[in-house]
Amino acid sequence: MGNRFLPGAGIFFLFFMLFFPLDFLGDSQKKISLFVFGNLTERISKDIFNTNNARIDFSSDSISMFVLAIVLLIISLLMALLLNRRYSRQILFFSKEIVIIYLAVVLMKYGFDKVFKTQFYLPEPNILYSRFGNLDKDILFWSTMGTSRFYSISTGILELLAALMILFRKTRVLGLLVSIGILINILFINLGFDISVKSFSLILLLMAVFALKDEWLQLYRFLVLKQKIQLEEETEPGTKVLPLWISFKTAFVGLSLAAILFPYVNDGNYNDDLVKRPFLHGAFKNRGENSDIRYIFFHRKNYMILMDKDEKMTDFHYNQGSKDQLILEDYSGRRMNVRFFYKKKDSLLTLSFGKYVINAKELNWKKMNALRPLFHIAIESRK
C-alpha cells in the first residue's frame, strides 16, 4: 500500500490542478468543473452536508471545494490501486513536473499582486474610521498589511524569486525549500486570521512537499544528521517526450505570465495605491449634531456607506445618474435617488434624501497615522 501512496498523491494533484479554478487564467476551468462535477457536488452538498445554499463555484473553503477534493481523492486512490507498477515512474515524474510549474505560476501571480500592491491594497476610508475592536480579524490583517508598501513589495519579490528558482533544476531544491517556508507562513496566517483560502494554501504546501519527494532522505541526512550528500539529478522518462514536454512548459509559463501581467500593462499602473478612485471617493463627517449619521464614506467599488454613532454601517451600491444625482441600490434591489452638491473649494457635501438633508465636511483620510510613511532607525527619534 505504501508504494501506492505517492502515485495516488500525484494523481490527486493532477486532478486538483485541472479542476480547481484559477480565476486569473480565465473561466475555462470553472466551466469544465461545473460540467463534470457541478450536479454531483450540488447533490452531495444537499444530501450529506445538509445545505441548500452552498456556493457551487469550487472557491477555496467552500463546501463545493471540500466535496470536489473528496471526490478527486477517492478517484485518485482507486486509480493508484489499479495502476500498473510500470507506469508509476512516469506518473510520478510528470505529476512532479506539473506541480512545480503550477506552484511557480501561483507564486508569480501572488508575487506580482504584492509588488503592484493589489493584494494588500490601501485600506478604505470606512475601515480607517472604524474602531479596531469592531473589525473582523481577516479585515484587520488585510488592512494592516495594506498600509505598508515596503512589506508588500518585499514579500512579493521573495515569492517571485522562489517561483524563478523552482523553474530551473540547478536551483529547484533551494527554491522549493523557500516555497515551503513561504507557504507555511501563509497557511498559519490564513488559519490565525480566518482568511478564506485555508484549504488552497494547505494543498499548495502539500504540493511543495510532494515536489521534494526525491530529496526528502538526502535533506534529512544533510539538515538533521549533518552528513555530506550529493543530490542526484532526476533522469527524464524518455528522449522522445522531452522536446514536447519542454515546449509545453515554456508555453504554459509564458501564457500564464502574460495573463498575470496583462491587466497591469493594459491599465499602465503598477501601484494600486495610485489607481484613480471614483468621484467623491473618501470620508465625510456629518456636521449635523442632531443626526444619527456620523460619517459618510464612498468606497472605491462604488459603495456609499453610512456610519451611525454606534458605528453600525449601512451600505448602498451607487451610480451617478446625472450631474447632481446619485442612484442608490440596497441588497434587496430597491433603488432611491439622492441629490447631491459637492463644493470642492470648501470640501463640503450636501446629500438630500428627500426631506432629510445631510451636510458633511470632507476629511483628509490619507493623513491619518496609519497611512503616514514613518520609519525610525532609533527609538529615540519617535515622538
Rank of each mutant, 00 (worst) to 15 (best):
L128F: 05
M165L: 13
K96G: 13
Y110C: 07
L160Y: 02
V106T: 13
P125S: 02
E97W: 05
N134Y: 15
V99R: 04
L158F: 11
E159R: 00
V106W: 05
E124H: 06
M108Q: 08
R149H: 07
S154N: 01
L107P: 02
S130A: 14
L164Q: 00
S179L: 12
V173Q: 09
N185Y: 09
S196L: 13
S196H: 09
R169H: 06
I195M: 09
L206V: 03
D214Y: 14
D138G: 02
M108A: 12
L212I: 03
V115F: 06
R172C: 03
V178D: 00
F193N: 01
I195F: 07
L140A: 11
E159T: 00
I166V: 10
L107F: 14
Y102V: 01
L174Q: 10
L183Y: 12
I98Y: 11
A163K: 11
V197R: 00
A104V: 08
F141H: 09
I127R: 13
T144M: 15
I157R: 00
A162I: 06
L140W: 08
L158Q: 02
S179M: 12
L204N: 10
G156N: 10
I184F: 15
M207H: 03
F116A: 07
A162Q: 03
D113Q: 12
L174D: 02
F150N: 04
I127E: 12
R169V: 08
L164P: 00
V173Y: 03
D138A: 10
I101M: 14
L107R: 03
Y121G: 14
F116L: 07
R172G: 02
L202S: 08
D214N: 15
D113C: 11
I100F: 08
Q119K: 13
V115W: 08
E159S: 07
A163M: 13
L212K: 00
I139H: 05
L140N: 09
L187E: 08
L174R: 10
L204Q: 11
R172Q: 14
L191Q: 06
D194G: 00
E159A: 08
M165I: 05
I153T: 04
L164T: 13
F132Q: 15
R169A: 08
F188A: 13
G111K: 01
P123S: 12
M145Y: 07
W216C: 09
V115G: 02
T171K: 02
